[in-house]
Amino acid sequence: MLQKGDKAPDFTLSATPERSVTLSNLRGKNVILAFYPADWSPVCSDQMTLYNEMLKYFEKYNAELLGISVDGAWCHKAFAKVRQLNFDLLSDFEPKGEVSRLYGVYDNGISQRALFVIDANGIIQWSYLSPIGENPGADGIIKALEDIKSN
């Protein structure tokens, strides 16, 4: 798993069936990557519901949140619609798990529940691997963003 100080590997992934997101296009902003095992499973849903509430706080830190799992773009679309999520869920679908592998958080066919906070220059400033069944909350993310802000 990539750690603080590592350069965040660039990627382009689908955010919707029609639109993709490239990490390097977000230079100048802090980026939060939230890898998670699957749409619809109960813990992820709570985690993504929580992050959805957090968007205005992330904005205060000039940070953009991206969720990533191996689910397809249409699955993400349905999931985001039902949960009314207002941030992008990226599909690490083809080749399956490629980006999760780059970040060292791919295991047994799914993304692990892992968080990365990447600064405006594309350097990882914080990463955290959560037990897969545990919702890691957002306290670590906020602390990492505060540390970036104060440096």
């Binding site: 709570d46 985690q47 929580l50 509430e53 957090m54 706080y57 919702n135 890691p136 909350g137 306290d139």
Partner: peptide, 12 residues
């Protein structure tokens, strides 16, 4: 209150 919860590790 909400923000204090997030900082304190509230996750649901």
């Amino acid at each position: 209150d909400f923000e204090s919860g997030v900082r304190s590790g509230v996750n649901g």
